[in-house]
């Protein structure tokens, strides 16, 4: 299984290194042809405005949306969350509006307001996540189909999941945190081979419609 990491700009090497620590191959994605055969896609931190321009210039928008519609799991961190948001409060154009959320860019202020903290993410178990926020966005609105995965003490939302799309305002890849990547790898493996547990019993030689 290979997981793509959008590599037009940003901290993509850190995600590939994190995937390597859990035994998953990460591949750099700069062009639509790089998306062939990926079982999942990570959108890394970086500058969302620069990433947006590069995504559009090289025609990555439609192929990524198509991938997501086919059920391939996507995971965005920081700028990646902004790319995945259905709305951006300052009116910046949306890019891959797959999450029914509104985000505010640079919501905490400038670099001097960047911070680290311990964050409870119940879905990942009792051990808190060490979260690094760098000129980070926050989620200001979530739609009814969106699960909130984590909030700051003041209630502001910083991690969400909607179906096959997960996004965090912080950077697990900068703190040696692997559980989000394990989650995506598991979702990707399930998508590749959904198994036969859900009541459906296709003939073993006729697994049509499933990406392998």
């Amino acid at each position: 299984m290979r997981i793509g990491v959008l590599a037009v700009q940003g901290a993509f090497a850190e995600h590939i290194a994190t995937l390597a620590t859990i035994g998953v191959e990460g591949v750099e994605v700069r062009l639509p042809s790089d998306l062939e055969d990926v079982s999942g896609l990570i959108l890394p931190g970086g500058e969302s405005t620069a990433q947006r321009r590069l995504i559009d210039r090289w025609g990555l928008r439609e192929p990524i949306l198509e991938l997501a519609r086919a059920g391939v799991p996507l995971f965005g961190t920081c700028a990646g969350m902004i790319l995945l948001a259905g709305g951006i409060t300052d009116g910046d154009p949306t890019v891959l509006p797959l999450l029914d959320i509104d985000v505010r860019r640079n919501a905490f202020g400038r670099q001097l307001d960047s911070f680290e903290t311990e964050l409870a993410v119940p879905m990942l178990g009792d051990r808190p996540v060490h979260a690094v926020f760098i000129r980070a966005p926050i989620v200001e609105r979530v739609g009814p189909g969106v699960d909130v995965l984590a909030r700051l003490d003041d209630g502001r939302i910083v991690a969400v999941r909607e179906r096959n799309v997960v996004a965090t305002a912080f950077h697990p890849e900068l703190a040696g945190e692997t559980r989000f990547h394990r989650l995506i790898a598991t979702m990707a493996a399930e998508h590749d081979d959904p198994g036969e547990g859900s009541g459906r019993r296709p003939h073993p030689t006729r697994r049509t419609g499933m990406a392998r």
Partner: peptide, 17 residues
Amino acid sequence: TSTWATKKGLAQMLKGG
């Protein structure tokens, strides 16, 4: 705030740019 990880981290976000 202003930890080594946040200082170094912003530069990491600028990579490839």
